[in-house]
Nucleic acid binder design. Sequence first.
DNA 1: CGACGCTTTGAGGAGATTCAAGACACGTGG
DNA 2: CCACGTGTCTTGAATCTCCTCAAAGCGTCG
Lengths: 249, 249
Amino acid sequence: MIHSIISQASTTTTAVTCSNCNLDTLCIPKGLGQSEVGELDLLVNKNNLRQKGEVIYQAGSPFKGLIALRSGSAKLLRIDLNGNELVVDFILPGEILGFDGLSSLIYNCTAIALETVNYCHLPVHKIERLAANTPGLNHILLQRSCDQFDSQIDKMMLSRRSAEERVACFILCISDRLRLRGYSEMEFRLSMSRVEIGNHLGIAHETVSRIIHLFQTQQLIEIKSRQLKIINKKELFNFYTTYSLNSTK
Amino acid sequence: MIHSIISQASTTTTAVTCSNCNLDTLCIPKGLGQSEVGELDLLVNKNNLRQKGEVIYQAGSPFKGLIALRSGSAKLLRIDLNGNELVVDFILPGEILGFDGLSSLIYNCTAIALETVNYCHLPVHKIERLAANTPGLNHILLQRSCDQFDSQIDKMMLSRRSAEERVACFILCISDRLRLRGYSEMEFRLSMSRVEIGNHLGIAHETVSRIIHLFQTQQLIEIKSRQLKIINKKELFNFYTTYSLNSTK
DNA sequence: CGACGCTTTGAGGAGATTCAAGACACGTGG
DNA sequence: CCACGTGTCTTGAATCTCCTCAAAGCGTCG
């Protein structure tokens, strides 16, 4: 608690900019020129905080801009007619949120912090202004948006697979995304509950539990509560592909 | 056959432009100013043809630009590790294809004509050029791209639902999209096979057949081969929502 | 320490898949 | 014009995966 307050204070005093931010290669600035990053930096609201469970933005509310997570993680969700929540995506540090509001200018989804998050906020009216005289930015935004499309297709493909494959893929996917951001790819803490994983993968949370247990007995992973260690990544990946070959035959 | 050749010849001679195109309110020009449409018009390759089953673009090939369907329909698909095809989307006239290649500059999916299609092609290098001095275009492209994201979320939500709901939703969705484009919303021909519908909805084609039959016995629709008539749209929609309430209880 | 939420585990059942076979539609060639 | 073949669609029966419901274990926080 005290630690987080201290680190918070220090980030504010050292005047974080887009150019010295450790996310620069992951965030929007990637691909922009020096002067463009400088301009972007002036427009971004930095060091916004949300505690675990707090709403970052609400579905149905007017689009206020894009958000880049600097630390912590979040879930992007939508509630269906029955009140069940579907977790559209989990968002890890360095990833960008808000594309669900860009088209209609109303957020389509709700974003909620899974743990304390620190984020940068690029207000909508400033996006417009900056985009007008920053040709590179438009390209980046479009690219980021299409990235989302691509990953949605991956999710769609996953929804045709068995529960085992979904969980295996989920673990490998989180691992890979953490690796990209410089964290350990073999051992990490899941910031989301079994229920949330289930809501994301389209399976019951009991099934998530059972399969995680199965993977442990097969010595593919070690799990204690939310602390996960990948023991046999290759086999986990093989499981994922081999299984589907069997199921087709 | 003769008819299609005639209509083809006439469209070429009457010099179709983006401004006189009957898709203008659905296609990219929507939201652009007069002069911008004019500029766009000069860059677009019009009247490309593909016959049923022919490839429009192939997954893995370099991105060549965005494509707007003027007539006919297509499917956007991806092949998984087992060689099963997943139909990511069906594309109806006036809709835009190619966002799956915009980010990585490699097409992620394969696009195949479901019947004879006529399309406009906006080459990638010309997009860049036009976008540089057409602030509105970037916005449109980004918006269209995010639209795709939104509809992907809808599909994700659908994947959590029962097979009946998926088929009901599919029929209503096609109906609605045809209505938007000025076609009859109550009676139309499905250009895709049961197998393709199944691959799109994530269910076996036998299940698609069974449910279509079920809907017919319930007098919600009339179907003969691929010719579909919606008898009770309201009930079809109710079915879709009521069922899910029951399933939660 | 007790309450609450999260996770695990078991048993039974529902929905969808798979496999198999037959019906239908469409185009081709005799 | 009909026979034929191919691909599509329908229908049935058996099987299996996953869900639902239920209850107990675990952990955390006030």
